[in-house]
Nucleic acid binder design. Structure first.
Lengths: 120, 120
DNA sequence: TTTGTAGATTGATGAGCGTCGATCTGCCAG
DNA sequence: CTGGCAGATCGACGCTCATCAATCTACAAA
C-alpha cells in the first residue's frame, strides 16, 4: 500500500548539524487558516452518516422537504433527527421554513461550494 | 435568508385524514447507505481545522513530507500532531512511511475522490 | 555501548457528541 | 375552548474527542 512519490528535501536536526542546507520554510499562509476553520466546520457537520444522508435527500429532491417525510427514513427518534437538522443549520448547510404545523428544510445553495472546490 | 424553492407534495396526517393522496415514498436506496457511512468517515476526519490543514499541506507539496516539517506549522504538541496523523491514516486519507528516524506522510491518491464527487 | 533524537504510545482531563424519553411550544380542527 | 398533532427543546446517559505531560521505541551518531 505504498505510493511512489518524490520525497521533499528535509532538514532534521541531525542533518542540520552536519552543515547541510536548512529546510525550506514550508510556510503556511494565514489566509488559509480561516478557510480551513470554515471548511472543517462544514466537514464536521457532514461527518455523521445520518446528517450526510439528510443532506443527500434534501439535495436530490431539490426543494423544500417536510420533516415528517424525513423521520420515517431513518432509524432514529424524532428528537434526534431534530438535533441533526439543528446541527446542519448551525453549520450553514441547510435552512428551514415553517408553514403552519410543518417545517420545511432545504439545502442552502453554495453552502458546500468552498469545501467542494477545495476537495477537487 | 430564505431561498425560493419548490415545495414537495407532502402528506402529513391531517391531510391524509382529509382523503388527499398519500405521500410519495421518498425512498432512500440502501446502496447509498454504505457510501454515506464511508463518506461521513472521511468528512469526520476532515472535520478538524488542524487535520484539514494537514491534508492541505500534504496535497500542496505533492510528495512525502517529514513529520518534523509539520510540527512547527501548528500550535500543538508533537503527541497531538501524531494523534491527528493517526486519525487521518485510520480514515484512509493519508499513509506514512518510515525511513530511519523520520516518518514521511503523504495523501493517498483518490482517497477524497468519492466525497469530492458527491459534493459537486 | 552510550547518548541523543524522531516519532508513537499511554494515561488523564475536560469538553462535546449522539441518542433517548419526557416535556414544551405553536398551530389547526372540532 | 379543548384536544391533538408537528416539531423543537430539555435533561440525562454513555461514549468519543482534542489536548497535554510523561513515557516508550527505534534508530543513528559518537
Amino acid at each position: 500500500m505504498s505510493v511512489d512519490l518524490p520525497v521533499l528535501e528535509l532538514t532534521p536536526k541531525t542533518k542540520r548539524a552536519a552543515g547541510e542546507p536548512c529546510c525550506e520554510p514550508v510556510v503556511y499562509p494565514d489566509v488559509q487558516r480561516d478557510h480551513a476553520i470554515r471548511m472543517a466546520e462544514v466537514a464536521k457537520a457532514l461527518g455523521d452518516p445520518i446528517r450526510l444522508q439528510l443532506v443527500d435527500v434534501l439535495r436530490k429532491h431539490a426543494g423544500k422537504v417536510c420533516v415528517c417525510e424525513l423521520v420515517p427514513l431513518f432509524d432514529i427518534s424524532q428528537p434526534t433527527l431534530s438535533h441533526h437538522l439543528k446541527k446542519l443549520r448551525a453549520a450553514g448547510i441547510v435552512d428551514s421554513e415553517r408553514q403552519g404545523l410543518w417545517a420545511y428544510y432545504y439545502v442552502i445553495p453554495d453552502a458546500l461550494k468552498e469545501l467542494s472546490a477545495w476537495l477537487s
